[in-house]
Design a protein around this nucleic acid. Structure first.
Length: 463
RNA sequence: GGCUGAGUGGCAGAGUGGUUAUGCAGCGGCCUGCAAAGCCGUGUACAGCGGUUCGAUUCCGCUCUCAGCCUCCA
């Protein structure tokens, strides 16, 4: 069996994964800033790292999966003022909405979800250490800044030199900074803004410091894997390294993982471009598992183009897998199956879910063939298929229930109505009234219900 | 300007120095009252130009095109 390899952004290559402590993995992922609904880009992060955590556990590791929640920042304050509500009320609401989306996507909750507002103690003490070690200073405007020039390795994650970057190209450089790339660790609060007491007066933390503080709090100074979206590589993760390593004097993270963007029409989906779909919107038309499949159908580092066609394909694909599992009682396989071996090989190669899924399809094909001839073999095949699906968080539902579940928020025809129609059609079939039988089938098809005759039985599913 | 990454069959999307990805769609067949599902068969794909090689889609160089980061963003 092959060893797990992970692409490490820091090294720009795949490396054989070796945890700091045998059998255990510390995983930290930058989570959401909670002032709005999650969009499909956020869904990708949730699904990708849920799959990483699942597969690590499947491989036998004891995983501590931490994903923070940024519940204080400028946008949150602005949105709270707009909505005329307390910022805490606003963030609590969207944390709850996020968890609903996460559940719909069949993603497990992380083991820990630290909040920035509940981590002020460690944030402040880390800033104190940074000032003490002269990696940070108080600017003329009262802001506390990190001095990028004080950290030798600055730029090592994103592969850039301070001199090569175009400071001020798009944004005015703050005069209080020693170097244009110095960033805020703590900023004083304006009147009426939420604030916390600190040695530098009432204020709130900068964005980057919270992740350094929370990850260290939960996983220690040095841990295994840190993940997030590609766009966080610079400056966010670069700054985290600078803060943490300067403060602790230790290596911060061994493996950095970054997932690619979701795109629309070959353009990054983002809040600033306004070209995003919320998970909530997509769930109106598609099942959560279909979104999950769509995310996993390409490699996590590749761009993922969002479109209805893609979601429709995910729907067909899942339909095929669930159909294969229908009417079969899985039987655990004691022998190591070749499919499972190949599946693991694919996953061990930097979580190649696309390839792993292709193995599942081959397994489903075999299962379909064996169904009629070798029921015992087929039952074992079904167990294999489910074994592979588990770390991907797929095929977790009862096949019949899945196939008959509504394909979005819109419920459609009630099951009882469908059953009644089917009975009516069965009578027509007995009467050999093919015209009526076909008419009923067509009518149901119009309503998104597909009928399938299998002998004397008729089954149905929603598509 | 600096730095990343990418260009695969009708679509999506893996992968490989010489042999089948996989899914969807299409075509032909089996099954079916007819369908659907399933099964079987079927497609001279690897941006362009050079180079290395017995042989390159796969390695190297150049060109073109696209995306991302250098501001908040997953």
């Amino acid at each position: 069996m092959s060893a797990l390899k992970i692409y490490n952004t820091l090294k720009r290559k795949k490396e054989t994964f070796k945890p700091l402590v045998d059998g255990k993995v510390g995983l930290y992922v930058c989570g959401m800033t909670v002032y709005d609904f999650c969009h499909v880009g956020h869904a990708r992060v949730m699904v990708v790292f849920d799959t990483v955590a699942r597969y690590l556990r499947y491989s036998g590791y004891e995983v501590k999966y931490v994903r923070n929640i940024t519940d204080i920042d400028d946008k949150i304050i602005a949105r709270a003022i707009e909505a005329n509500e307390d910022f805490n009320t606003l963030t609590k609401r969207f944390i709850d909405e996020m968890h609903q989306d996460e559940a719909a996507l069949h993603a497990h909750r992380p083991d820990l979800e630290p909040l920035a507002t509940e981590s002020m103690g460690s944030i402040i003490s880390m800033i104190e250490v940074l000032i003490e070690k002269q990696h940070a200073y108080v600017g003329s405007n009262g802001d506390v800044y990190y001095s990028v020039e004080s950290f030798e390795g600055y730029g090592k994650l994103s592969g850039r030199e301070l001199d090569d970057m175009n400071a001020g190209e798009r944004v005015e450089v703050d005069a209080a900074k020693r170097n244009p790339f110095d960033f805020v660790l703590w900023k004083p609060a304006k009147a009426d803004e939420p604030s916390w007491a600190s040695p530098w007066g009432e204020g709130r933390p900068g964005w980057h410091i919270e992740c350094s503080a929370m990850s260290t709090d939960c996983l220690g100074n040095h841990f295994d894997i840190h993940g997030g979206g590609m766009d966080l590589q610079f400056p966010h993760h670069e700054n985290e390294i600078a803060q943490s390593e300067a403060a602790t004097g230790e290596c911060f993270v061994n493996t950095w993982m970054h997932n690619g963007f979701v795109r629309i029409d070959d353009e990054k989906m983002s809040k600033s471009l306004g070209n995003f779909f919320t998970v909530r919107e997509v769930l109106k038309k598609y099942r959560g598992e279909e979104i999950r499949f769509f995310v996993l159908s390409s490699h996590y580092r590749s761009p993922l183009n969002y479109s209805d066609e893609q979601l429709n394909e995910a729907r067909s694909a899942l339909e095929r897998l669930y159909t294969a599992l229908r009417n079969i009682q899985p039987l655990d396989n004691d022998e190591a199956s070749d499919f499972v071996r190949r599946f693991e090989e694919a996953m061990n190669d930097d979580f190649n879910t696309a390839k792993a899924i292709s193995v599942m399809f081959e397994c489903a094909n075999e299962l379909n063939k064996l169904k009629t001839t070798e029921p015992v073999q087929a039952a074992k095949m079904a167990a294999d298929l489910l074994a592979m699906a588990e770390p991907l968080g797929l095929l977790t539902q009862d096949p019949e229930e899945y196939l008959q579940s509504s394909t979005g928020t819109d419920e459609g025809l009630a099951s009882e109505q469908i059953e009644a129609k089917i009975n009516q059609r069965l009578q027509a079939k007995l009467d050999k009234d093919w015209g009526l039988a076909d008419q009923i089938r067509d009518e149901l098809k119009q309503q998104g219900v597909m009928l399938e005759d299998a002998g004397k039985e008729t089954t149905w599913r929603r598509a």
